[in-house]
Design a protein around this nucleic acid. Sequence first.
DNA 1: TATTCATTTAACCGATATGTTATCTAACCT
DNA 2: AGGTTAGATAACATATCGGTTAAATGAATA
Lengths: 120, 120
Amino acid sequence: MNNLNSTFSALADPTRRSILARLAQGESSVGELARPFDVSLPAISRHLRVLESAALIVRERRGKHRVCRLDARAMVGASLWLDFYSRFWSESFDRLDKHLKQTRQLKPGKGSSNANTKKR
Amino acid sequence: MNNLNSTFSALADPTRRSILARLAQGESSVGELARPFDVSLPAISRHLRVLESAALIVRERRGKHRVCRLDARAMVGASLWLDFYSRFWSESFDRLDKHLKQTRQLKPGKGSSNANTKKR
DNA sequence: TATTCATTTAACCGATATGTTATCTAACCT
DNA sequence: AGGTTAGATAACATATCGGTTAAATGAATA
């Protein structure tokens, strides 16, 4: 439904993330997807419904089976959202860092650098 | 706690995403953060606790106020996770596309291209 | 057509999430 | 000390989530 809402809440469940991991390697039927998990088939079926309504997978009837495929477009959307904030954050972090260096006369370099402030 | 779990479920709530949006523009006190929302202060306080335990914000007592700052490192982690799957997906999409072109002798170009298969 | 296989839907249950109001707690100000 | 301000915590109601078992659906097959 609502894009980010449903995307993030679908991704919040580890079983669903595992299912997506499996689907990243290729399409799969419901039964195959369920096998590695220790939960009932209806439970998996519901996870798949959640993933589908978050547009993270597509399902297609193929004969007696129902085949699921990953559709990562929603992930791209979520990733862009995250990137926007990360960038905003790291820029303000850089500004703060610079400000501290200026005002406190720190030696530039190792001491105040942070692995996560790299621009991407 | 568990990284992706808590990150994604913290991000699944629109109020919390709004709070993060506000914090991307700079630190803010709890009261300031609460003002634009139509919910009680305790509700906001709990949202902030969720964000803090997902390591998306840090809080610091400053006199009578408690100031919140964005910490986007967890977002970077989530974004990398998403990127991995998106890339995997678009590559296999490309393979499929190529395969179809080869086997069905489609004219390369417009017809079978898809805006979402671009490599990033 | 009856049976079987693959999966979904229904009905239910306990745990968790989100919101509310009322009650602390901690820092600041006379 | 006593009062005010800024937030957190407690106690509670309600909704949603994730799981279960039992029953229904829909396509393939004997």
